[in-house]
């Protein structure tokens, strides 16, 4: 029973993430600009902002897409130019391993506590 649940869970999670990466390839300019921080605004995305920075950014991304760059290439380009700060989704690296990992570790830990609670004699 447990094995079945586990398999199903893993299946769901993997399909979800593979779906996301698949979908990434055909996202348009709106999707990309929503994931970018407007650097001169207070907590607004490039998409939502009408500032000069955001407008020139939108033009730039438009050109980049036309040149045939993929979403990831555009992010990479922008990160090199403006720093990690500009993207709303931090990549997994040594700086952010705990950002992504800590909640998941806590989740597993919590699950173990519950298993202990229901199996203890």
């Amino acid at each position: 029973m447990k094995k079945i649940i586990l398999t199903v869970l893993i299946l769901i999670i993997t399909t979800f993430y593979s779906n996301i990466s698949f979908a990434d390839q055909n996202k348009n300019i709106d999707h990309i600009t929503k994931n970018l921080r407007c650097l001169i605004c207070q907590g607004q995305s490039v998409y939502d902002s009408q500032s000069d920075f955001a407008l020139s950014m939108k033009k730039l991304i438009h050109i980049k897409i036309k040149e045939g760059n993929t979403e990831d290439e555009i992010y990479k380009f922008l990160k090199e130019k403006y720093g990690e700060w500009i993207v709303y989704e931090p990549e997994v690296n040594k700086n952010t391993i705990f950002l992504w990992g800590l909640p998941l570790i806590l989740f597993i830990f919590g699950g173990l506590l519950i298993i202990r609670k229901v199996t203890i004699k």
């Binding site: 996301i20 929503k34 994931n35 921080r37 995305s45 720093g83 990690e84 700060w85 500009i86 993207v87 709303y88 989704e89 931090p90 700086n95 952010t96 950002l99 992504w100 909640p103 998941l104």
Partner: peptide
């Protein structure tokens, strides 16, 4: 190091 944690992070997790 300056990073932004926005909607995609929360949605994915």
């Amino acid at each position: 190091a300056k990073i932004s944690v926005g909607p995609p992070f929360y949605h994915k997790l």
